[in-house]
Amino acid sequence: MDQIARWTERENRNKARLALLNQYMGKHVAWSLDMTKVLAAADDHLSLHEEAARLGLKGGDYVTEYIDGEGGHIW
């Protein structure tokens, strides 16, 4: 893959993730293992696991992350 193709691929990947991040601000999300799809979302971490279980997902099927809300930071 040449350099331009790599940059284009990265840019597309970043744009796709940014679109998802904007959609889920302030939420806890369950990412697919390749981090490209949001499989479940909830207002808190434990509810996220409950929602994932309700959708038939097992613990190792997804990666959790908190998406900062408007004006929010790590804490």
Binding site: R17, M25, D68
Partner: peptide
Amino acid sequence: TTTATFTN
């Protein structure tokens, strides 16, 4: 690495 947004 992971893409992170700035909220402002």
